[in-house]
Amino acid sequence: MTTFLRKRIVSSAIPLVVVVLGVFILARLTGNPVDLYLPLSATAEQRAAFSAEHGFDQPILVQLWDYLGQVVQLDFGESLRTGQPAAEMVLEAFPATLQLAAVTMLIAIVGAVLIGSLAAYRPNSLADRTSSFLSMTAASIPDFWFAIMGVLVFGVSLGILPTSGVTGGPEVWVLPIATLLIRPFGVLVQVVRGSMVAALSAPYVKVARGKGASEKRVVFGHALRNATMPVLTVAGDLTIGLVNGAVVVETIFGWPGIGKLMIDSILQRDFAVLQAAVLLTAVTIFLLNILIDVCYALLDARVRQAVPA
């Protein structure tokens, strides 16, 4: 298992470095912060002083070198906007995003396993066709459209749900989670159904029935665990998508997570915060990938042993 982990960590480190470099360079393509932070009337001396203070007067490679030197010391710089350490701001925003993603995925996985298994149990039954149709629809709805319609119907017309913010009771969760949930849920129902149909027709399921196992035991004891692998792969990808794609939902609903922070930092050319936010997201994705691989190995002994020492 440790060999397995070591190999995964080494192979994931390279993309991480690429992400750090990419963001650093792309951020600087958005324009010079000087234009944004100083009044139009600022003199050339003032502009030069501002640039010199924040190092923007250096050649980009020098800036990059300095940045990397700071990052390895876990110094992520300060926000241009607030003067707060970037790391602090990012870490403050991150739990809100994580909560949203975790609750969404929990609901999506549990719901999809139940509905997908039910559909797979009797392929082509009415229940199967209904769930296939609905899940396909859910997987195809664009989240920004769903969010706006949600706000329009439940927030504006009916007035039963808040349109944005995090203050208030559990109702503030409803629209953001519903928006994030709809696609992963639809996709997962389809994946669970597909892999359960395959698992339920496997010979070992016939053997389990031959032992007198109840249908509950056959479905959940034998078939489901075998159907888990593809579901896990897709669920992992979707979770990564959520951490990443919370940008839209957080912006629409004013959810103070890392997605909103990223958008704000881009708009403000707040490079240090943007870089820290992207780096943290990349590290999270990297850790999630390792977690998924560990889950594979725990679920299936064949994966555990397939890794050469």
Binding site: A202, P203, Y204, K206, V207, A208, H222, R225, N226, L299, D300, A301, R302
Partner: peptide, 8 residues
């Protein structure tokens, strides 16, 4: 091989 459950 197919008749035994691979993950148990």
């Amino acid at each position: 091989l197919a008749a035994l459950n691979p993950v148990q």
